[in-house]
């Protein structure tokens, strides 16, 4: 269904009532969102369910999307992440997470959806590489506070407890990590390109 005439952002069309465009949205972003949900939830049926909920929410709230404030991808990622963290918190999660920590998620679907258009996939692949490079430049303790906050939904004080360090130290480290990341990504032209996919 995707062709040259497909607009860069699909959410405005969806907000205007084009439910068929949700199919295109799913083809474009499904695999990024699903990877994130698997990472957060560590469980396929849950990830699949939250994926569906996220797209339904995106469909219902499409009119809230403001392209001046960020990319369509970031908007969707934020919906999916929030839902997943809510799901995580509502589980009696701590025990499960510890049990599953470090468990690799087997990937049975090797092929990535390419329906988003070859050019878009190429840009996305490039963004991925640049993001990975920017993350790799962070010292390990900084990277790890980001991951605890983002993928496990831990608050700054929970991270402090987890690491046995003062709250102030954790906050400073997180802010520093985000600041470096922002600067590095800016150097790499990441923000402009992120809005192109």
């Amino acid at each position: 269904m995707t062709n040259d005439a497909t607009p860069r952002n699909l959410l405005p069309a969806i907000a205007a009532g084009d439910t068929v465009a949700v199919a295109d949205l799913y083809d474009r972003h499904g695999s990024v969102l699903y990877a994130l949900l698997l990472k957060i939830l560590g469980d396929r049926p849950d990830a699949q369910e939250v994926l569906q909920e996220s797209f339904v929410q995106a469909w219902r709230r499409a009119a809230d999307f403001d392209p001046r404030r960020g990319s369509e991808t970031a908007w969707l990622v934020s919906i999916a992440r929030n839902r997943a963290i809510d799901r995580l918190r509502s589980r009696n999660l701590r025990a499960i997470r510890e049990e599953e920590a470090g468990r690799e998620i087997p990937i049975d679907a090797r092929s990535v959806d390419t329906d988003g258009g070859a050019e878009r996939q190429a840009i996305l692949g490039e963004l991925r590489e640049r993001m990975q490079a920017a993350l790799a430049e962070l010292p390990e303790p900084q990277r790890s506070v980001l991951e605890l906050a983002y993928f496990q939904g831990l608050s700054q004080s929970e991270i402090a407890t987890e690491l046995g360090e003062p709250l102030g130290t954790v906050k400073t480290r997180t802010q520093l990590a985000m600041k470096k990341l922002r600067e590095r990504l800016k150097d790499l032209g990441w923000f402009d390109d992120a809005r192109r996919v």
Binding site: A35, G70, Q132, E147, M178, W190
Partner: peptide, 10 residues
């Protein structure tokens, strides 16, 4: 926020 979404894209 865009950078944070990058954690998912990575």
């Amino acid at each position: 926020r865009e950078a944070a979404a990058g954690l998912a894209i990575a």
